[in-house]
Design a protein around this nucleic acid. Structure first.
Length: 556
RNA sequence: GGCCCGUUGGUCAAGGGGCUAAGACACCGCCCUUUCACGGCGGUAACAGGAGUUCGAAUCUCCUACGGGUCACCA
C-alpha cells in the first residue's frame, strides 16, 4: 500500500506539515517549573459542580508556579452543543474567580496558542491526520449516510449491559479488522461514490502487556496496552476527544492534564496517540469523582439532574463565592482547614496548594460541611460586606427584599452589625437567603407574631412587666443599666433577679429575669429567639418598641 | 462480563512498619448565658475480611468482598 498516495487521496487540500505547526506554536518560554494547565469544557450550557475541582487545581498549579492557565472550548460534538454556552462558561468561571490567562473570552480569543475553540482547529487536526495516514498508522473507514444514521441511533448503553457483551465486542472487532485493509482501488471507489470516511488509528498494543505510568494523584498505574483502534476523525472530519486532546495539549504546550478519573480507561489510547504523533505526553492528574448517596445508600456519581450538580445552583441558593471555593479546597487538600485556622485572614489563594495532599479516592458531597464553611466565611465579613453580599443575591433572587434593603442601607447595616466583628462572631447565615428571615422583624411590613407568650406565666404579671419596661426605658441607658432595670422589674413581680437564684430555689419565685427579658423579646420581635435584645431595641427605636409592646399587651 | 481505580468513625480525613489510631463536620452531654447564635469542656464512633512477610502491620505482599468508573464516529 502506498501510504503517501492514500494520504493525498484522503486529504488533498492539506499542505501544511507538522513542522509548520511546531513553528507556529513554539515551546513556551516560562520559568523553570512553571506549569501549564487548562480547563477544557464542552459547551453544553451546563457547568458541573464537579468541574470546579479540576479547574481549581489547574488554576492553582499554574498560577502558583508562574505558569499559564487557559480555557479551551471542546465543541467537537455538535449534537450536544448549546447556543451561548461558551459565554456562559466564561461568565461562571469568572464569577468563581478562576481567571484564565488565555482562551476564549467575550471579546474573542486571548493568547498566542489559539484558536482556543476546537471546531476552529480542524485544519490543524487534518495536518496530523494526514501525517498518520502517510505513516501507515491510520486508515479510513467508509460509511454510507444510512449506516451513519444507524450508528447515531444505536443505544450503546443497552448493548453494554447485555450478557453477550463479550461476543458482541469480538464481532465488532472482527468487523473493524475487515475494514482495516481496503485496497487503494476500494478507497478510490468509495471516494468516487461520495461516501464519507472516519479515520481510525491502527492500534499496536498487546493487552496482555501492561504499561506503567505515574499519575500525580493516583500514583503508579498499571494499564494494559491499547489494542482498540481509535477513532481520530468522525465522518464529518471533526476529531474525537482523543485526537484533539493529544494534538491540542501538545501544541498548546500543556504540562499537566488535570481531569476526572472517568478518563482513566482511555489513558492507554491517549498514550498511544502521543507516541504515534511523536509528542511527549504531558503529566496526568486524574481526580476522583464527587459522589452523592442514592436512595439505597450507595455512592453514585453526582449526575446532571441531581440537586447541586449545576454549579450555578450555588449562586441561586445564595452561597457566597468564597464559601464554595473554600469548601472545594477542604476536599482538595486535607490540610487546608488547619492552615486556614492558623491564617484566618488570608484568602484561599494564599494557601500553598500541594498535589501530594490530594486524595486518590472519591468523596461524598456534604451539604452540612459546606454550610459550616459558609457560616465561617460570612461570620468573618464586615456588616458592609454582608450587606453587599445579600444585595447581590437579592437583586436577582428576591427583588422585593432588595428594594427594602437598599431603601435604607444604613438601617440594614446596623442590623447586620449585631454580634459581628468580635473574636466570637455570630454565625447565623450559611446562605444569603438566611438573612431575610433573620432580619424580618426589624421591618414593620415583615413583622409577625410567630411565638406566643408563655402559657404558664400569669398574664397580669406579664402585663405589669411590659408596662414597667416601657415606663422605665431610657434610650441613654447602657447595657448594664438597662439590664439592672429588667432585674428590678423581675423583682417587682415576684421573679428572681438572677436566673441562678431561681434555679437554686425554684419554689421561692414565680420566674426569673430571663422570663422578663423573654416577655419583652416576644412583644418586640414576635419571637422567642433573637439576637441581643438590648441592641435590637436600640435599632428598632423607642417609639416602635413602645408601639409593639402596647400591641402585645392588648393581645393578652 | 472484561479492564482500571478505590476502601481508616455517619461525612471529609491525618498517619507510609513500633500510638491509648490526630483533627474538622454532624450527633450527644455538660458549662457559659436574659433567648438565640457564638464560645469552652467532654463523649459516642473507624483501619472491609482472610492469609502471608516481620520481634512487631492501619502501614508491605497476595487473595476475597464491597464500592466506583469505563467499554460510542459523546466528552
Amino acid at each position: 500500500m502506498d501510504y503517501n498516495r492514500l494520504a493525498e487521496l484522503l486529504f488533498p487540500g492539506v499542505t501544511a506539515t507538522p513542522e509548520d505547526m511546531e513553528r507556529r506554536y513554539p515551546e513556551r518560554r516560562l520559568p523553570e517549573g512553571a506549569k501549564v494547565t487548562r480547563i477544557a469544557p464542552s459547551p453544553t450550557g451546563f457547568f458541573h459542580f464537579g468541574g470546579l475541582f479540576p479547574a481549581t487545581v489547574g488554576e492553582r498549579l499554574a498560577h502558583q508556579s508562574g505558569g499559564v492557565f487557559f480555557l479551551r472550548i471542546e465543541d467537537t460534538d455538535s449534537k450536544r452543543e448549546v447556543e451561548g454556552a461558551a459565554a456562559f462558561i466564561t461568565k461562571i468561571l469568572s464569577y468563581y474567580g478562576l481567571d484564565f490567562d488565555e482562551g476564549v473570552t467575550a471579546d474573542g480569543d486571548k493568547g498566542d496558542y489559539g484558536p482556543y475553540t476546537q471546531s476552529q482547529r480542524v485544519d490543524i487536526y487534518h495536518v496530523y491526520a494526514k501525517k498518520l495516514v502517510r505513516d501507515g498508522l491510520a486508515y479510513p473507514v467508509f460509511s454510507t449516510d444510512e449506516e451513519l444514521d444507524e450508528l447515531k441511533a444505536a443505544d450503546k448503553k443497552a448493548e453494554i449491559k447485555s450478557v453477550k457483551w463479550e461476543e458482541e465486542a469480538q464481532a465488532r472487532r472482527d468487523a473493524m479488522i475487515a475494514r482495516r485493509d481496503f485496497t487503494m482501488e476500494q478507497v478510490e471507489a468509495e471516494l468516487a461514490a461520495g461516501h464519507k470516511f472516519a479515520l481510525f488509528a491502527r492500534a499496536d498494543g498487546d493487552p496482555e502487556k501492561k504499561i506503567k505510568i505515574t499519575d500525580l494523584v493516583k500514583g503508579t498505574l498499571e494499564i494494559p496496552e491499547n489494542d482498540e483502534d481509535v477513532v481520530l476523525l468522525k465522518s464529518d472530519g471533526i476529531p474525537t476527544y482523543h485526537f484533539a486532546h493529544a494534538i491540542d495539549d501538545h501544541l498548546m504546550r500543556t504540562t499537566h492534564v488535570i481531569r476526572g478519573e472517568e478518563w482513566l480507561p482511555s489513558l492507554s489510547k491517549h498514550l498511544m496517540l502521543f507516541r504515534y504523533l511523536g509528542f511527549r505526553a504531558p503529566k496526568y492528574m486524574h481526580i476522583a469523582q464527587l459522589m452523592r448517596l442514592d436512595e439505597n445508600g450507595n455512592k453514585k456519581k453526582l449526575s446532571k439532574r441531581d440537586m447541586g450538580a449545576n454549579l450555578d445552583d450555588y449562586r441561586r441558593m445564595g452561597y457566597p463565592v468564597p464559601s464554595v471555593s473554600e469548601y472545594v479546597m477542604t476536599l482538595l487538600n486535607s490540610n487546608y482547614e488547619e492552615w486556614h485556622m492558623q491564617n484566618p485572614d488570608k484568602s484561599w489563594r494564599d494557601f500553598p496548594f500541594s498535589i501530594k495532599k490530594m486524595s486518590a479516592s472519591g468523596c461524598l458531597f456534604d451539604t452540612e460541611k459546606l454550610n459550616d464553611v459558609s457560616k465561617n466565611v460570612i461570620s468573618r465579613m464586615t456588616a458592609e460586606q454582608v450587606f453587599d453580599g445579600v444585595c447581590g443575591y437579592a437583586k436577582t433572587e428576591d427583588p422585593e427584599f432588595y428594594e427594602t434593603l437598599t431603601g435604607d442601607p444604613e438601617y440594614a447595616k446596623r442590623i447586620l452589625s449585631i454580634g459581628r466583628g468580635g473574636a466570637k462572631p455570630r454565625k447565623d447565615f450559611a446562605v444569603w437567603a438566611d438573612v431575610r428571615p433573620y432580619m424580618a422583624f426589624f421591618y414593620d411590613k415583615y413583622f409577625t407574631r410567630d411565638d406566643e407568650m408563655p402559657a404558664d406565666k400569669d398574664k397580669a404579671d406579664i402585663k405589669t412587666a411590659l408596662e414597667s419596661f416601657v415606663s422605665t426605658y431610657d434610650e441613654n441607658d447602657d447595657q448594664s443599666a438597662w439590664f439592672e432595670k429588667c432585674k428590678d422589674i423581675a423583682e417587682s413581680i415576684g421573679y428572681a433577679r438572677e436566673t441562678k437564684l431561681y434555679r437554686k430555689e425554684p419554689d421561692k419565685y414565680k420566674g426569673h429575669v430571663g422570663d422578663v427579658a423573654s416577655f419583652v423579646r416576644l412583644a418586640v420581635t414576635g419571637r422567642q429567639n433573637s439576637p441581643d435584645l438590648y441592641e435590637v431595641i436600640k435599632i428598632i427605636g423607642k417609639d416602635r418598641m413602645v408601639d409593639r409592646i402596647r400591641a402585645a399587651i392588648a393581645l393578652l
